[in-house]
Design a protein around this nucleic acid. Structure first.
Length: 513
RNA sequence: GGCGAUUUAGUGUAGUGGCCUAGCACGCCGCCCUCUCACGGCGGAAACCCGGGUUCGAGUCCCGGAUUCGCUACCA
């Protein structure tokens, strides 16, 4: 394997990039970088019917957000272009002709209706050596008739002529040699005159060859057609430079059966696309990992481990570490259920490593969404808040649930907490507490905690009840960081004001027990 | 139906014939910490698809079955 490593990610612009496609791109990228090779991005838009505007830009932006860098290809320049298949018609035409001239392919005029009829008539109909003799093609029709039909504008396709009786071997780096009998292959359509475009199979082989691809790393759904591709390389006489194949296992539904689909994400509550997608046809909006608050490094780390491992127990890895450790030696061959719960954990982990000030910046838009103007608070204040509560979040937006009380006084009080911690004597004790707080020479957490605790003990009050009533008054419920860290940040005036409000409201709004 | 791939706890996985009384992580449960919720620390329940073989010895090798997934288009 002395050849320069060149891999490609070749999606179709038929919609947003699926998370499974992202993983394929990632493995391509990791493998290329690990071996000092190049990663190309090719857009396979040979199906004009399924083209979706915006999909191409979406793919490019997604890869960029994730940090998967493209060396060559659509949107990135390079010397082997064009990298968009719809712009390579001249090239494909030439190679189709080559196959036709060599008698390795033929022209077929059968209409979709005729094909359907043939399939209906014969149980396991397949357009191959056993049936092509009875179809309308250049093998069964006189040459001048073929020419006349073409000249008259009759639509036709070019089919690959597969000879039966051969054992075709695909050498897959992950699965070893996979052998298939050529008899079960059908005469695949390579080119359609209707839109003057090749199908995937032809375009793929021609482009991979011309672009010097050394390794074809793609999803397992391509394994069945890999023998066809091998045959195509043979027909073109390119076997000596045929790329190595790697067919990656698929991403499966977290529950149930089958491969992961967009519906699963909607149903179970997780994104299946890297970025938010606005469907141009339906107008529907699908959320993305980015918009859902995932960090790209978390998505990358999580995805990398879905079907691959470094050979030891290491789980937290930066993209550079992944590149360093990546190899197909440690790839699994079975499909992996999409363990999105673990994805959340990765995000939690990477969020903890983020600088508090950076997290605070990311929190500001969330504050605005909840009607809080972050400019009303200092960056220092928001940063401190974030530092206090970030340990309990999986997403940036979770910060609001944990820290809302730092930005506005509670307006309601958790009824269960009231029942448990707010008795008839509580208001009096809270009033005493106000006096104590007022008397504190230093309101900092470190300096205020002990005096207050001492006061509680000296009066024989119940520690849990007093502290939780205090917390209930300030926070609105029994949760949150260390009480005195909260009050230090809030300040003496705000703290006392909240206690007063609570004494007032809890007494009047909620019947005390 | 045909063809191919696949199979370790609920999930992602380690394991390349003895070091496996099967490891790690997520999730779950418990304990500790504690004014609360978390975090963290400690601990727990939980797996080699089944059946044959080969071998002194099999999660690891061979055969058969089952399972699951994919493909079976003028889609990729």
């Amino acid at each position: 394997m002395d050849r320069e490593v060149r891999v490609r990610f070749a999606p179709s612009p038929t919609g947003p990039l699926h998370i499974g496609g992202v993983r394929t791109a990632l493995y391509n990228y990791l493998f290329a970088r690990h071996n000092g090779g190049k990663m190309l991005l090719r857009i396979e838009d040979t199906d004009s019917n399924r083209f979706v505007p915006g999909a191409e830009d979406y793919i490019i932006e997604s890869l960029k957000w994730l940090g998967i860098k493209i060396d060559e290809g659509v949107g990135h320049g390079g010397e082997n272009g064009p990298y968009r298949q719809s712009e390579r018609r001249d090239i494909y035409r030439k190679y189709v002709k080559q196959l036709l001239d060599a008698d390795r392919a033929y022209i077929a005029f059968d209409t979709p209706e005729e094909l359907e009829a043939a399939r209906a008539a014969t149980p396991n109909f397949q357009y191959d050596a056993s049936t092509r003799g009875s179809m309308r093609n250049s093998l069964t029709m006189p040459a001048d008739e073929v020419k006349r039909l073409i000249d008259s504008g009759e639509k036709y396709v070019v089919r690959f002529k597969i000879e039966p009786g051969r054992a075709v071997v695909v050498d897959d780096l992950l699965r070893g040699k996979v052998t298939i009998k050529s008899d079960i292959l059908d005469d695949k359509v390579l080119y359609k005159s209707a839109d003057d475009l090749p199908t995937y199979h032809l375009a793929n082989i021609v482009d991979d060859h011309l672009m010097g691809i050394s390794h074809v790393i793609r999803g397992e759904e391509w394994l069945p057609s890999a023998p066809l591709h091998v045959l195509l390389y043979e027909a073109f006489g390119w076997t000596d430079t045929m790329p190595h194949f790697v067919h990656l296992p698929l991403l499966l539904k977290p529950d149930g059966k089958g491969k992961l689909s967009k519906r699963d994400g909607d149903r179970l509550g997780f994104p299946v696309f890297p970025l938010e997608w606005h469907d141009p046809q339906s107008g529907n909006i699908s959320t993305g990992y980015r918009e859902s608050g995932y960090l790209p490094e978390a998505v990358i780390n999580f995805l990398a481990l879905l079907g691959w491992n470094p050979g030891d127990d290491t789980e937290i890895m930066s993209i550079d570490e992944l590149i360093e450790k990546f190899s197909f030696e440690h790839c699994s061959r079975a499909g992996a259920k999409f363990a999105y719960e673990k994805g959340k954990w990765f995000n939690h982990h990477y969020l903890q490593e983020l600088d508090d000030a950076k997290l605070a910046e990311m929190f500001k838009p969330v504050l605005r969404e909840h009607g809080v103007n972050p400019d009303d608070f200092s960056d220092e204040y928001i940063t401190k808040v974030v530092g206090m509560v970030k340990g309990r979040i999986n997403f940036v937006k979770d910060l609001w649930d944990q820290a809302a009380f730092f930005f506005s006084a509670p307006t309601t009080y958790d009824p269960k907490a009231i029942k448990k911690r707010w008795s008839a004597e509580t208001p009096a004790i809270m009033n005493e507490l106000i006096d104590q707080l007022q008397a504190l020479p230093d309101f900092s957490s470190a300096a205020s905690e002990q005096p207050i605790l001492d006061w509680i003990n000296a009066n024989g009050y119940h520690m849990g009840n007093v502290m939780n009533a205090f917390r209930l008054a300030v926070v609105g419920e029994c949760k949150g960081p260390h009480m005195f860290d909260i009050t230090e940040l809030l300040g003496r005036d705000e703290t006392i004001s909240r206690i007063r409000t609570a004494i007032d409201r809890i007494k009047s709004d909620e019947p005390t027990v």
